[in-house]
């Protein structure tokens, strides 16, 4: 286990760089001067007790919350600084799998994916091909016409992952993506996530309560406590 400060620097040009970020809600400090770097293609898992700031950090990276202080850099570009979001969420090209998935229930599986493609200005001629490829990647071929409400929990999870990835996202954020599933399905989808992440070599930051799960998913585990980094554990040193 490494001391914070030694292991939160990854390279000269990290893909994601968080510098001295703080955030308070209603006078209560959720994140305190937190700094972290994530390398291109690396999988970092944030662990820690409830209320320690894991989800808030993820939402700030996505641009859904504004940091009170500090800076966030994405692929060298400063996206948040001086208490403001400089780049809006939809320009950051980030995929986010929410804890409750937040699938658009009024759209079919295909509609959910198509919305992202058309929003990110992918030419219409490519939509069908990319949707088919993505559904095949998450093993959901044949489900395009179904509505989310008609899918099982595991299938919904796969659709949420497909939606997060389809727009050519350069960073994948996962907020306790497996928490609502039973043990068998959890294991199956965890393996699936690792397979997809390896295949796409996409930089990933995930949040989980489960340290055993974190060990399987992570290259590095970052443990948060009271809004600060308590420790960083390198699980797979080869990635660095």
């Amino acid at each position: 286990m490494a001391k914070p400060g030694e292991e939160n620097r990854v390279s000269e040009s990290p893909f994601l760089r968080i510098v001295g970020v703080s955030k308070s809600f209603g006078g209560r400090a959720i994140l305190k001067n937190l700094s972290l770097e994530v390398a291109q293609g690396e999988s970092v898992v944030l662990v820690g007790p409830s209320g320690c700031g894991k989800t808030t950090l993820l939402r700030m990276i996505a641009g859904l919350e504004t940091p009170d202080a500090g800076e966030i850099y994405l692929d060298g570009e400063c996206v948040a600084a001086g208490g403001q979001n400089l780049v809006p969420p939809f320009v950051r090209r980030i995929g986010f799998v929410f804890q409750d998935l937040a699938l658009w229930t009024h759209l079919t599986v295909e509609g959910n994916l198509r919305f992202v493609l058309s929003s990110r200005k992918v030419p219409k001629t490519e939509h069908a091909k990319r949707i088919e490829e993505m559904l095949s990647l998450v093993r959901m071929k044949g489900f395009a016409e179904k509505y989310p409400g008609k899918l099982s929990g595991g299938e919904q999870q796969r659709v949420a992952l497909a939606r997060a990835l389809i727009g050519g996202s350069r960073l994948l954020l996962l907020d306790e993506p497996l928490s609502s599933l039973d043990a068998d399905l959890r294991g199956e989808l965890r393996d699936e996530l690792i397979r997809i992440q390896k295949r796409l070599r996409i930089t990933t930051v995930s949040v989980t309560h489960d340290e055993a799960e974190a060990r399987v998913l992570a290259d590095r585990i970052v443990k948060l406590k009271d809004g600060e980094i308590e420790s960083i554990t390198i699980v797979k040193p080869e990635i660095r």
């Binding site: 641009g63 969420p89 939809f90 980030i94 995929g95 937040a102 658009w104 919305f115 990110r120 727009g167």
Partner: peptide, 11 residues
Amino acid sequence: RMEEAALLAAP
């Protein structure tokens, strides 16, 4: 959350 998920892709 549904709106937030969409805001990651669209204005």
